[in-house]
Amino acid sequence: MLVDIDTLNELKEIMGDDFDELIAIFISDGNTQVENLRLAVSTSNSEDIRRIAHTLKGSSANLGINTLSESCRVLEHKAAEDSLEDAQELLEQIISNYEAAKEALEEKF
């Protein structure tokens, strides 16, 4: 599943008016993080790749965006081991997951 609707509904219930801000922040920060990640991969900077993937992994997990979180986890792991052979491929996957999640969030919330 692309996004966990239950998690998002719970967040919405708890956060009330702040929920819209949360979604907005996630999307705008997500754009920045994806751009930074793209740059890091293109320059093969393992440290930056690991750090950005780690952050994105955590925030997407908190919003119940599990597919994105999972693909970030794999990239973070690879970067930590400094094995960047699949980095480009994983980046594409993350971008596609992020775009899909963004669509789902904008559509449903």
Binding site: L11, I14, L22, G58, S59, N62
Partner: peptide, 16 residues
């Protein structure tokens, strides 16, 4: 936390 979304979520939980 350096991540704004995380801070927002936690903050909401705690204030609640």
């Amino acid at each position: 936390d350096d991540d704004r979304a995380n801070r927002l979520i936690l903050s909401a939980y705690l204030k609640k």
